[in-house]
């Protein structure tokens, strides 16, 4: 066992330093495309780190959202940026050098080093053992309606936070739609290989999404992960040039976007009236309520992420600038 611990430490050390090194190369390199590829790799390593830290739920979220969807978002935004700015050819040193005066740069660096030192000192002063809220979570898990503690926290113990979280998602799509117009989804190319790949991949993704939603009650998974995989399936369809109907105009899409937050608010109101406390589920029905909330939240999260992807890269809405 000793040897295992040693090798594991070696693995952790290497992973940690790679994360830092990657971030450094990503943020201070002169080629934006390289930065984006490094960011995707960074997300990959982060997911492995989450696994090492016994946080498989976070690893799932990172793999789908952090590395997957954010990567696709960045990649598309970069492509769009390049059509707007001719100077951005990949492979060339294309960025303006930092405008800061040399002295200012050194001041910023000095400040960063001092801040790092201070924060590191604070972190190291924390007690090496701390129960946190794990005892409280575990003792109440039986009455939460699910057996997986992360789901219990997200959907039951701190369900009110998740309600507001759904509002953030709704806001993000409202925001992207109000900042950029929403015409039809991207350009339509057809490519036989891609189409076959996507035809095979999309149903699998949807199946995996349903599986993660279902498994979330007793194992890592749940609405956020399932929803982001659903969103990824949609993004694949858009990328393959499927003529998706006009998202913004469609009433059905709006309904799907609102379903999650609306379910939360409806249930909050219902429980407020019946139980006297918002989102307080009767123990007997807690499992059903949580499954219902998670299902609708999955639909909303998936639709939102897809709409964010499509919406963030369409032309800006024509706006009058007369009275600002």
């Amino acid at each position: 066992m000793e040897a295992v611990g040693l090798w594991q430490s070696a693995f952790d050390l290497m992973l940690g330093f790679s994360l830092f090194g990657l971030a450094w190369r990503m943020l201070f390199c002169a080629d934006l495309f390289k930065s984006i590829v490094l960011f995707i790799t960074f997300g990959l390593l982060m997911a492995i780190a989450w696994v090492r830290l016994e946080a498989p739920d976070v690893a799932l979220a990172e793999a789908t959202i952090g590395a997957g969807l954010t990567g696709a978002l960045l990649m598309s935004a970069f492509a769009k940026l390049r059509t707007l700015d001719n100077s951005l050819k990949s492979g060339q040193p294309l960025l303006p050098r930092p405008r800061l005066h040399v002295i200012n740069f050194w001041i910023a660096l000095l400040f960063t080093v001092l801040l790092t030192g201070g924060l590191a000192y604070a972190v190291l002063s924390l007690p090496s053992h701390s129960p946190g809220l794990s005892d409280a979570v575990m003792s109440q898990l039986d009455s939460s309606g699910v057996t997986h503690p992360v789901t219990a926290v997200l959907l039951n113990f701190r369900g009110y936070d998740t309600l507001l979280e759904m509002a953030v998602l709704l806001l993000s799509i409202q925001s992207v739609w109000s900042m950029a117009g929403m015409s039809d989804a991207g350009e339509v190319h057809t490519s036989p290989v891609l189409n076959v790949l996507i035809q095979l991949l999309s149903p699998v993704l949807i199946l995996v999404s349903a599986y993660l939603l279902w498994v979330g009650a007793h194992a890592p998974g749940g609405a956020f992960q399932a929803g982001s995989i659903l969103g990824a399936a949609g993004v694949l369809l858009v990328l393959s040039g499927r003529p998706l109907f006009n998202l913004k105009k469609s009433w059905l899409i709006r309904l799907m976007l609102v379903a999650g937050p609306a379910a939360f608010i409806a249930l909050a109101t219902l429980t407020l009236i019946n139980e006297g406390q918002l989102l307080k589920y009767p123990v007997a029905n807690a499992a059903n309520y949580i499954l219902l909330l998670e299902t609708l939240a999955t639909v909303s999260i998936g639709t939102t992420l897809l709409a964010l992807f499509v919406g963030s890269q369409t032309e800006a809405v024509q706006q009058d600038q007369s009275h600002q």
Partner: peptide
């Protein structure tokens, strides 16, 4: 004051 979810702090909000 209102106990959201019926879970008292520190577990709840």
């Amino acid at each position: 004051s209102h106990v959201a979810g019926g879970w008292l702090a520190p577990l709840g909000i």
